Computed example of a mutant assay.
Amino acid sequence: MSLKLDCGLFKYDFIDHHAILCVPVDADAKEVRKRYLKIARRLHPDSSTVVGETAKQVANELLSKLVNPAYEKLSVERNRAEYTLVLSQIGKRLAQSSESIELTTDVAKQLLSAPNIDLLYKNQLTKISTTQFDDLQQASQIIAQISELNLVYLMRTSGHSIIKPQLPSSNPPRTNIAPPPPPPPPKEDSAVEQYLRRAQTLLQKNQFALAKVELQDALRLEPRNSRCHSLIAMAYLGENQLRMAKIHLDNALKLNPQEKLALEWKPKVDKALGIKPNATQVNSSPNHGDKQPDKSGSGGLFGGLFGGKK
Rank of each mutant, 00 (worst) to 15 (best):
Arg220Trp: 05
Asp270Ala: 11
Tyr153Pro: 00
Tyr83Cys: 04
Ser100His: 10
Leu305Gln: 06
Gly307His: 15
Ala209Lys: 15
Ser97Leu: 03
Leu203Gln: 08
Leu136Trp: 00
Glu148Val: 06
Asp217Leu: 12
Gln138Asn: 13
Pro267Asn: 02
Ile143Gly: 06
Pro180Lys: 11
Phe133Glu: 11
Lys34Cys: 00
Val25His: 03
Thr49Asn: 07
Ser88Arg: 09
Val32Ala: 02
Ala235Trp: 08
Ala235Ser: 13
Asn240Gly: 15
His17Tyr: 15
Arg93Gln: 02
Ser64Val: 13
Thr54Ser: 14
Leu103Thr: 03
Glu31Asp: 09
Asp135Asn: 14
Ile163Lys: 08
Gln138Leu: 13
Pro185Asp: 11
Val23Glu: 04
Asn287His: 11
Arg78Pro: 09
Ala199Trp: 09
Ala199Arg: 13
Gly91Thr: 05
Lys187Val: 13
Leu151Ser: 08
Ala29Gln: 08
Asn171Phe: 13
Pro277Cys: 09
Ala144Ser: 12
Asn251Ala: 12
Thr131Ile: 07
Gly91Met: 08
Leu119Thr: 12
Glu77Trp: 05
Lys34Thr: 00
His248Ile: 11
Ile117Glu: 01
Pro183Lys: 14
Thr157Leu: 10
Pro165Val: 13
Gly8Thr: 03
Ala233Cys: 03
Ile232Leu: 01
Val32Asp: 01
Asp46Glu: 15
Leu21Phe: 07
Gly289Gln: 05
Ser47Met: 02
His160Cys: 10
Ala114Thr: 01
Gly274Asn: 15
Gly159Phe: 06
Val25Leu: 10
Leu74Arg: 05
Gly304Thr: 14
Tyr121Ile: 03
Gln96Trp: 05
Gly300Gln: 01
Lys164Asn: 07
Val58Gly: 12
Asn68Glu: 11
Thr201Tyr: 08
Leu263Phe: 07
Pro173Glu: 04
Glu188Trp: 15
Pro184Ala: 13
Gln145Tyr: 13
Leu9Ala: 00
Leu136Gln: 10
Leu111Met: 06
Glu82Asp: 07
Ser170Met: 11
Asp118Leu: 10
Cys7Val: 05
Gln141Gly: 09
Lys38Asp: 06
His248Tyr: 09
Gly159His: 07
Leu242Ala: 01
Gln96Glu: 07
Ser298Trp: 12
Asn278Asp: 15
Gln124Gly: 07
Arg220Tyr: 04
Val50Pro: 05
Ala81Thr: 14
Asp6Glu: 02
Pro69Tyr: 12
Ala108Trp: 11
Phe10Cys: 04
Val25Ala: 09
Val86Ser: 09
Gln124Pro: 06
Ala144Leu: 00
Leu94Phe: 08
Leu103Asp: 00
Lys271Phe: 07
Pro165Tyr: 12
Asp189Val: 06
Asp46Gln: 15
Pro185Leu: 14
Leu119Trp: 07
Lys310Met: 07
Asp290Pro: 01
Leu215Glu: 02
Leu85Lys: 01
Pro223Cys: 03
Lys187Cys: 11
Gln141Tyr: 02
Arg93Gly: 02
Val58Leu: 14
Arg243Phe: 11
Leu167Lys: 14
Gln204Cys: 03
Gly274Met: 15
Lys309Pro: 06
